[in-house]
Amino acid sequence: MTSSLVLSATTFVYGASAFFYIAAWVFHQNALGRLAFWTGVAGVLGNVAGFGLRWAETYQMGVGHAPLSNLYESLVFFSLAIATLYLIVEKKYGHRSIGAFAMPLAFLAMAYASLSPNISDRIQPLLPALKSNWLIAHVVTCFIGYAAFAVAFGLSLMFLAKRNPDAPGLFGSRIPDERVLDELTHQMVMLGFLFLTAGIITGAVWANSAWGRYWGWDPKETWSLITWFIYATLLHARLMRGWRGRRAAIFSIVGFGAVLFTYFGVNLLPGLHSYGSM
């Protein structure tokens, strides 16, 4: 399939962009930074093209549906969301060093989709339960949320690296100051929380239309709620004294761990959600 080829190629474009971002940061080269940005833009365009092409291919196969129905497709969308969100943040706030921490995540998601032997990139027809317009709303909202948490995770790593007194000088001097990192992390956590909330809600409404119950404590549902509790804790902990900065950064890293477990780990537990088992 052409779309898989386009997406595999996009993996390398993201990889190159991530590499340029890291190099630009380490060697303090502005020109490299611009190159990294435009390579990232090319990656996003390739990603969008692959996504659209795959959508068209499902129609050619007579099983037309949005390509958001299995692990491969969700990873493709995940990496699109991370890369796009990061590029917007860079345009808006102008801190290019963040790319050294964010763009590798988009690369890893796409590389996992394209290169892992356990993930099939075949287009599969939809099972009856997935035939719903809520599928699109649910997956899109969840993964925008996950992408925001991923960027927050990158920012939190930067924060901790900057705080670490043993870190080599380049960690300290060439990344935004703590106030900006903290504020940006908070922005990303809020964005993620909003979309995770929307994702849980669209999932609940969908479950109610398919199975007649909006909540059933199935392990994936429960883990998304656990993730939601963790980020809600973080939002409130910021209101107490001393819970900004380092503690907030650690919390956001733990939260992203819960996101990853909700996404991948839950398949180790029994349940209804099919992603990952394919």
């Binding site: 404590w217 392990p219 429960t222 883990w223 709620l225 656990i226 509790f229 963790i230 809600a232 804790t233 409130h236 902990a237 209101l239 107490m240 819960a258 839950v266 537990l269 029994p270």
Partner: peptide
């Protein structure tokens, strides 16, 4: 108190994990 909120949200998260490890 907001401390109670933080404690309760953490407790809910922790106990919910238990329920996903023990089949229900």
């Amino acid at each position: 108190s907001i401390r109670l909120t933080v404690a309760l949200l953490l407790l809910l998260a922790a106990t919910s994990i238990l329920g996903t490890l023990i089949p229900q």
